[in-house]
Design a protein around this nucleic acid. Structure first.
Length: 274
DNA sequence: CCGGAGACCTGATAGC
DNA sequence: TGCTATCAGGTCTCCG
């Protein structure tokens, strides 16, 4: 569920845990549980540390501590990070709970596509999940030059290109369709055929769809909530995603749905011609 | 290097 | 009510 705007919304609502000390770490244990997480021992290295920052790169959240360790969290499709009263009942599919005195920070994830790790912050650039990532989608580095240069040798589709986290970190399936619609680019167009002018359009479009969604607290199609449990409003403001059969907001043509690499893609056949 | 398919998981929903 | 099929915001790996 969560792409850059949703993860950034979670990050912002997590800021109140800065300064909190991790008094306890509970995890759901072995067996029928999260696939991608470190051994319990590693998680327990967080005990006694104070949270000093909550950062984000692409879809990854990074919680720094006053020790040498940081906690990495990827929400996958259904992951949730919630700040809750220590006495609140545990949500179903809860895999990790950091005790923070009167509050807890709880991670739950029904489908278990999420990822948790504890890593040495000094080695952050070497972390296997972070090392391959391109610049974050809200950073100034995601510009026409980057998109033009990195698309030159790609015979893949534009849809696959913008979803590639090693080019831009943070674009997921919803905002890929949205950004290509805004830039008037056909998702099936080959990336290496992107013109310099279109690269400019695309860079601007990516930033705009992210900011548009962020202003509305992200897109909730079914699962997404922020750290306070609040759903996002952006689903009502999507231009094409999940709108097959409806009118294009720009030209009124009926929006089409296709499948690229097994994932739904929405576009306007009339105004996405570049 | 690329795309496609399948895997990893559970839950919601639509159709019968 | 209950069954089945399909679909879902992400990534990873194997195959051709």
């Amino acid at each position: 569920m969560p792409e850059l705007p949703e993860v950034e919304t979670v990050r912002r609502t997590l800021l109140p845990v800065i300064g909190a000390r991790i008094a306890s770490v509970w995890d759901s244990g072995k067996g029928l549980h999260m696939a991608r997480r470190p051994p319990r021992k590693k998680l327990q290295q967080l005990i006694g540390a104070q949270i000093t920052a909550v950062r984000r790169h692409g879809k990854y959240l990074l919680l720094d501590t006053d020790g040498t360790k940081s906690l990495l969290v990827h929400l996958g499709m259904t992951g949730r990070l919630r700040i809750q009263p220590a006495r609140a009942p545990q949500a179903s599919h809860t895999h990790l709970v950091l005790g923070l005195g009167k509050r807890v920070l709880a991670f739950s994830d029904a489908r278990r596509f999420g990822q948790i790790d504890v890593f040495e912050r000094a080695d952050e650039r070497l972390h296997p999940a972070l090392a391959p990532l391109g610049p974050d989608g809200l950073e100034p580095g995601v510009d026409a030059d980057l998109l033009y240069a990195s698309s030159r040798k790609r015979r893949s589709t534009l849809k696959a290109f913008v979803l590639d986290q090693s080019v831009i970190a943070g674009v997921g399936n919803i905002y890929a369709s949205e950004a290509l619609w805004r830039a008037r680019l056909r998702p099936s167009k080959r990336a290496h055929r992107l013109t310099a002018a279109s690269a400019r359009e695309l860079a601007a479009a990516i930033r705009e769809v992210f900011e548009h969604a962020l202003e509305r607290g992200g897109t909730t199609l079914s699962d997404f909530v922020d750290a306070d449990g609040t759903a996002g409003e952006n689903a009502d403001y999507l231009w094409v995603y999940d709108r097959a059969g409806q009118a294009c907001p720009r030209c009124q043509t009926v929006i089409k749905r296709t499948v690229h690499q097994g994932r739904a893609t929405y576009y306007c056949p009339t105004c996405q011609t570049a």
